[in-house]
Simulated assay, not measured.
Amino acid sequence: MLDDDDEKTVIDPKGLRYKSKSAGSPFGGKGAFVGGTMSCLLCGKHRPQAMLKSRQVLGRPQKVCAPSCKELDEILAQQR
């Protein structure tokens, strides 16, 4: 017989969703861009879209930190 903890981690027959997994994103909101954050292609940190700019990387426009990852980290550190 399974105890309650084991039952929470059984995969649902309709898909690969665990019963114990909380719904939603760690970045808040529902949907792709409701939270208003995206990750920078260069540093990988999630930033509000207002802090990102579009830049050509490998021939395609990609979102990166503006003015740069290092400068943005310094600005945010001063505000804290």
Rank of each mutant, 00 (worst) to 15 (best):
A66F: 15
S54V: 14
R17N: 08
G35M: 04
C65L: 09
G31M: 04
P13G: 00
G35F: 10
T9D: 00
S54T: 14
C69T: 10
T9R: 09
G35V: 05
Q49T: 06
R80P: 04
K63H: 10
C40F: 12
G59M: 02
P48T: 01
D4F: 13
L2V: 08
C40N: 01
Q62Y: 08
S68Y: 03
K30L: 11
S20E: 07
Q49N: 10
E74P: 06
G59E: 01
S22Y: 02
K45F: 11
G29T: 12
D12M: 08
E7V: 14
C65G: 03
A77D: 11
K21R: 15
G35I: 15
I11S: 03
A32K: 13
S39M: 11
P13M: 08
G31I: 15
P26E: 00
C69N: 06
S20V: 08
A32W: 15
E7I: 15
M1Y: 05
G35C: 12
A77I: 04
G29H: 09
L42A: 09
D5I: 14
D4E: 12
E74V: 05
Y18M: 12
C40G: 00
R55N: 01
R80T: 05
A50I: 11
L76Q: 12
K30N: 09
G35A: 12
R80S: 03
L52D: 01
K53Y: 02
P13K: 02
G28L: 04
L16G: 04
M38F: 13
V64I: 14
A50P: 07
Q78W: 14
Y18G: 07
L72H: 01
C65N: 02
K8P: 04
M51W: 09
G15F: 13
L76M: 09
V64S: 01
K45W: 03
Q79F: 13
L2H: 03
M38R: 14
Q49L: 13
A32D: 02
R80D: 00
R47Y: 15
V57R: 03
H46F: 15
H46P: 07
D12W: 15
K45L: 14
S25F: 02
D5Y: 14
F27A: 11
K53S: 04
F27P: 06
S25A: 07
P61Y: 03
K14C: 02
G29D: 13
R47E: 07
D6V: 07
G28I: 05
L76E: 09
V64T: 05
Y18Q: 00
D5F: 15
L42H: 01
D12E: 03
T37C: 11
C65W: 08
L2I: 14
C40K: 08
Q62E: 09
P13F: 12
K45C: 07
L16N: 02
V10I: 14
T9W: 08
K21I: 14
S54M: 14
R17Q: 11
L2A: 06
S54N: 06
